[in-house]
Amino acid sequence: MNIKELVTEMDSVVAQGAIVDAVKQFFANDATTSDFGGVKTSNKNQMVEKMEGFAGAIAQVNGITHHHTIVDGNISASEFTFDFNMKDGSHIYWHEVIRRIWNYEGKVIQEEYFNAN
């Protein structure tokens, strides 16, 4: 599998705001995740559930900007800025780097989020 092409496709899906679809399409069933707040998931179903809950709490997408992506072997790092108004009245503005490890079947097996602010 061509990891660069897969990363480009996944980043495009994320940039369109379809974060749940990106997880469903690109994650391996046993994929793990962790974020800079210490929240972890241990499989694809948990991540889908987490992202469905998050996406359902968004009132308005003000912007999703994909800045850069680096691919080295089966590891990618994508820089994004996410700007959301939430249904609870809060505002989320995240500038983060998403590091992914891909298996050789073209699926994400580990994803980690780093705060770039």
Rank of each mutant, 00 (worst) to 15 (best):
T41E: 03
N43Y: 08
V71E: 05
N85Q: 11
N29H: 11
V23N: 06
A15W: 09
W102Q: 03
V39H: 09
D83T: 01
D30G: 10
V71L: 04
G38K: 07
Q60W: 01
A28P: 02
F82E: 06
W102I: 03
V13I: 15
G56M: 11
S42L: 09
N43A: 04
S90A: 13
H68F: 10
A18M: 09
N74T: 08
V13Q: 04
N74P: 03
Q46R: 06
D88Y: 00
D83L: 04
G73E: 07
K40S: 11
E96P: 00
K40F: 02
G53W: 08
H68S: 06
Q60D: 11
G89H: 14
S78L: 00
N45C: 08
V23K: 13
M86Y: 13
T41W: 05
G73Q: 02
W94V: 03
E9A: 15
N43M: 04
K4M: 04
T69I: 01
V14T: 14
I92F: 04
E5I: 04
K44M: 06
V48I: 15
M86K: 05
N43C: 12
E5T: 12
V61W: 01
E96N: 09
G53F: 06
N45K: 15
T8N: 14
R99Y: 05
K44R: 15
V48Q: 09
G56K: 13
A28Q: 02
V39T: 15
S42C: 06
S12F: 05
I75G: 01
G53E: 10
K87V: 04
F27N: 07
L6H: 10
S34I: 14
M47E: 12
V48E: 09
E9H: 08
K50M: 13
K50R: 15
T69G: 01
A18V: 00
F36N: 10
G56Q: 10
V20P: 05
V97P: 02
K44S: 02
I92Y: 05
W102H: 01
F54L: 14
M51D: 06
Y93T: 12
F26E: 04
I19K: 10
H95Q: 11
A22E: 06
Q46H: 03
M86Q: 10
S42N: 15
T81R: 08
G56N: 15
I70T: 10
V48A: 13
N85F: 00
Q25Y: 08
S90T: 11
F80R: 00
V23D: 01
T65M: 05
Y93F: 04
V14N: 11
F36D: 07
T32K: 14
L6A: 14
V48D: 07
K44Q: 12
H68Y: 12
S78P: 00
G63T: 08
T8S: 13
V7W: 01
Q25L: 10
I58G: 04
E9V: 07
A28K: 03
K50D: 05
L6C: 07
E49I: 09
S76K: 07
E79D: 05
Q60N: 13
T32Y: 01
E49W: 13
D21L: 06
E96M: 12
V39Y: 12
V13P: 01
N29C: 02
R99H: 06
S42Y: 13
F54H: 12
G56R: 12
F82C: 03
D83C: 02
A77S: 08
T69R: 05
R99Q: 12
M10Y: 02
Q25F: 09
G56P: 04
V71F: 07
T8H: 11
D30P: 02
G53A: 14
E9P: 00
I98R: 10
D21V: 06
